[in-house]
């Protein structure tokens, strides 16, 4: 386990250094392209003219003060925001080239490609096994052997297999908050997503659990594209490749994380990351 973490750290540093070099590596393909997105809660204009291309196998961090629309934006990416009554949108979000607001687009299908991890760990009041098997089951997998394999693979993927393998049948609520959150990550992995959305996944966790989740995010980006909302700027700097700074429902600046944190183009970005407001 420890070895695994160390290796990941080294790899991360290796991956970051080319970005600092004058010649940038070729841009990866765009997974999610947001074009002129606007969103209203009733009459409240919560997202304003958002343009944001999000690339494959990168960690994109979304930062900004409370109430600036970070959660709203990330919930719009899988259309969860529509659970709120009276939400209106305009503009486009292209996921793999197709507009998710198209009348014929099935939200259920979108959400099987795009997993989500929430701010507060929210396992089902079921066993650990049933939590992980939930996604595969709703998508029609009944074979016990297949489910067993998915459960193990997902729990390993979320770096929590060793901690829970002997008690897969106990209730997920018997675990600590940090473990619950990794169960929720494993549960999202079990639907074999393409993108993982995370809304402040560590804000309810202690520092050690936070570290574990951060390391996990680093590992996961090998296979998934990750969009993570975070309140914690060191976290964004540590784990993300790109950072978008939101303020009052607008994207003020979107660039390489190093650029945002070392040499921001906008005065407001600089003020925020240097802790002058927020």
């Amino acid at each position: 386990m420890v070895q695994l973490m160390n290796r990941t750290e080294n790899e991360t540093q290796a991956a970051v250094s080319p970005l600092e070099a004058p010649v940038r590596e070729a841009a990866k393909p765009v997974v999610y392209d947001t074009k002129q997105l606007n969103l209203w809660y009733g009459s409240h204009h919560a997202l304003k003219n958002i343009d944001l291309p999000i690339r494959e196998n990168e960690v994109t961090a979304i930062i900004g003060p409370s109430g600036c629309g970070k959660s709203t934006y990330i919930k719009t990416l899988n259309r969860m925001v529509e659970l709120v009554d009276g939400v209106r949108t305009s503009g486009e979000i292209l996921y793999r080239g197709r507009n998710i607001f198209e009348a014929k687009y099935s939200v259920e299908e979108l959400r099987t490609r795009v997993g989500m991890v929430f701010q507060k760990p929210n396992p089902f009041p079921k066993s650990i096994y049933d939590n992980i098997a939930y996604g595969p089951r709703i998508h029609g997998i009944k074979n016990k052997k297949v489910l067993d394999e998915i459960v193990e693979q997902s729990l390993r993927g979320a770096a929590i297999w060793d901690e829970v393998k002997d008690r897969l049948n106990t209730n997920a609520y018997s675990l600590s908050g940090g473990q619950q959150q990794r169960i929720c990550i494993a549960r999202a992995l079990a639907i074999e997503p393409d993108v993982i959305l995370m809304d402040e996944p560590t804000s309810a966790l202690d520092p050690i659990s936070t570290l574990k989740v951060e390391e996990l995010v680093q590992e996961l980006k090998e296979n998934y594209s990750i969009i993570i909302v975070t309140h914690n700027m060191q976290q964004a700097a540590r784990i993300s490749d790109k950072t978008a700074f939101f303020l009052n429902g607008e994207v003020i600046e979107f660039d390489d994380t190093d650029k945002i944190f070392q040499n921001p183009a906008d005065q407001r970005t600089e003020d925020y990351i240097s802790g002058r407001f927020g």
Binding site: N78, M80, L83, V107, E108, E109, L110, R111, T112, G115, M116, F118, K120, N122, P123, F124, P125, K126, Y134, G135, R137, I138, H139, C184, R187, A188, I191
Partner: peptide, 26 residues
């Protein structure tokens, strides 16, 4: 709690699946 419904919808479950598998058992 609303958050367990969200967890279910977030994985692509339909409303009916969420009701039968998450809401009603609780």
């Amino acid at each position: 709690p609303q958050h367990v419904r969200e967890a279910s919808y977030g994985m692509g479950a339909t409303k009916w699946q969420t009701i039968v598998r998450v809401v009603l058992p609780s």
